[in-house]
C-alpha cells in the first residue's frame, strides 16, 4: 500500500464518520451533544485530508451512496458502532504511520491519538496498542 492509498482509506472512513455522527446526532437525543462534537471533529479531519490529497494532485475518494454499519437503533448500539468506527480510523492512521516520515508521520500519530481518545468517549476502555486488532 502506498501513502496515498492509506490516505484515501482514511478519508473514506472520515466520510463514513461524518455521515454516521450526523445521523446519530439527529436521531438519538441522548447522544446528540457528543455526536455533534464528533461530527465537527471528523468534518475537520476530512477537510484536512481533502486538502492534502488535492495538494498531492490526487483525486480524493468520494462519499459512498450507503454505509454498511446498519441503521442506528438503541443508544447502546450507537455507542458500539461509534467505538468500532473510531477503532477503524485508528487502524487507518496506524497504517499511514509506517508509510510516511517526518511531519506527515507526526500528523498520523496525532490523529491516531485522537481516534484512541474518541473510543473512550464512546465507552471504550484503554488498551496497550490502539489501532491494532485485539
Amino acid at each position: 500500500m502506498t501513502s496515498e492509498e492509506a490516505l484515501q482509506q482514511w478519508l473514506a472512513l472520515e466520510h463514513e464518520a461524518v455521515w454516521f455522527y450526523a445521523t446519530v446526532g439527529g436521531r438519538d437525543a441522548a447522544l446528540s451533544a457528543t455526536a455533534r462534537a464528533a461530527y465537527d471533529a471528523h468534518v475537520a479531519a476530512r477537510e484536512d485530508l481533502l486538502e492534502r490529497l488535492h495538494k498531492a494532485g490526487v483525486e480524493p475518494t468520494p462519499t459512498a451512496l450507503a454505509y454498511g454499519i446498519g441503521v442506528p437503533r438503541t443508544t447502546s448500539d450507537n455507542r458500539k458502532i461509534a467505538r468500532g468506527l473510531e477503532a477503524r480510523v485508528a487502524a487507518a492512521c496506524l497504517t499511514l504511520v509506517g508509510l510516511v516520515e517526518g511531519a506527515d508521520r507526526d500528523f498520523a500519530t496525532s490523529a491516531l491519538r485522537r481516534a484512541a481518545l474518541a473510543e473512550l468517549t464512546w465507552g471504550g476502555r484503554p488498551s496497550a496498542f490502539p489501532g491494532l486488532p485485539a
Partner: peptide
C-alpha cells in the same frame, strides 16, 4: 505510535 495513543488513553 500505537503505544503513544494507548498511553494517552
Amino acid at each position: 505510535s500505537s503505544m503513544s495513543a494507548g498511553l494517552a488513553q
